[in-house]
Design a protein around this nucleic acid. Structure first.
Lengths: 193, 193
DNA sequence: TAGCGATGAGACAGACCTGTCTCATCACTG
DNA sequence: CAGTGATGAGACAGGTCTGTCTCATCGCTA
């Protein structure tokens, strides 16, 4: 075995599909387009993924893993919860400024696959809840669990709203206002020490 | 002329398309489905709307007008800015609880038509900016313009985030936390009186 | 009554969609 | 060398998509 060529193709399809889904959306991106861009035979794709929906799920999971890994690295840089949350907001700020920012793929998946029972919907919801859980565990260092859950939900709303405003061309003001609000909320909920 | 039957058909198509777009999304809803549900001939539809994209724009504009009218009525009930903003959050709370809540159609439009130059994208962005402008003018009563713009953007982010969380089945906690955060932010920015 | 505009019904074109199938090719391995 | 598994290339089926077209019908009005 050389370097597991099967997985190479598979991963290449996932990454190509990701780029296309991000730019044009899920329903507007056809299988033919994906395999043409990936330079892969149609049967190669269907041998790795049973259906387009399953491919979408795998793309989302792949991105969710990458996202988590980046935030894991970031979390080690901050000391206080304020710093750690600040790093998360800074990460989003850089993301908003990246040249081919097209909004949040997971939010778009929720929009296009509105059925809560659909695997794609579930995959997208998993990522959002994962981010909330991450922030909650950061906040639990300085406030009780229930309060941390509530603040984490608020921070998630600010981030999601900022992402939407960024997609509408208001990235700079959005992330600045969101960060300011976030730090204010954390300060107001911080356990006195 | 009786009651302008032409406009009746036109409006009926818009409302039928709205219900379908809301449930299944824009790209996933075909013209054939719309005319079948509206019990209208295909040519009747195409005589009123030059293309599906134009129909989508008209549906969004129609909903934006309705939304504005409801908030106009609500604005008269509140006295203080806190009350007026509170009414807007309560309106969203009721919306989240409505039986066929499927998330924000405008946000979904931004997701499905990601090109900022597309007429549908612009129509959706208009509605979001309109809500922000409405909240800003409410806030300008008690804080300077620049500050009001910033706070309004933050409130919009909270509302958008709450709508996304509501779509993920967390409507109750989302709107409660968002309202609490909103009132806190307004209090912190209020011009001393 | 005659005419006119709006509509209904549906065929049609041309493109695109997902998913299946066959067959040739190529690389690697026993 | 022979075999095996992954892949490439593309035809194909069956359906759906948008948008155009024709023709019959119906209601109102001059």
């Amino acid at each position: 075995m050389t370097s597991s060529p099967a997985s190479d193709k598979r991963q290449h399809v996932i990454e190509t599909a990701y780029a296309l889904f991000k730019r044009a959306g899920f329903h507007a991106t056809g299988i033919d387009r994906i395999i043409a861009e990936a330079e892969v035979a149609k049967m190669t794709m269907y041998r790795h993924f049973p259906s387009k929906d399953e491919l979408v799920v795998e793309v989302l999971d792949y991105r969710a893993v990458r996202f988590d890994r980046q935030l894991d690295r970031l979390a080690q840089e901050g000391i206080t919860p304020e710093q750690k949350i600040g790093k998360i907001f800074s990460w989003h700020e850089r993301w908003f400024r990246s040249p081919d920012f097209h909004g949040c793929l997971f939010a778009h998946a929720l929009a296009e696959f509105g059925d809560p029972g659909h695997p794609v919907f579930k995959a997208a919801a998993r990522q959002k809840n994962g981010l909330k859980r991450r922030m909650r565990s950061i906040l639990e260092e300085v406030m009780p669990r229930g309060r941390a859950e509530s603040v984490a939900a608020t921070l998630l709303m600010l981030i999601e709203g900022a992402t939407l405003l960024a997609q509408m061309g208001q990235a700079d003001t959005a992330i600045r206002d969101a960060r300011k609000a976030a730090l204010g909320i954390i300060a107001a909920s911080r356990r006195p020490q």
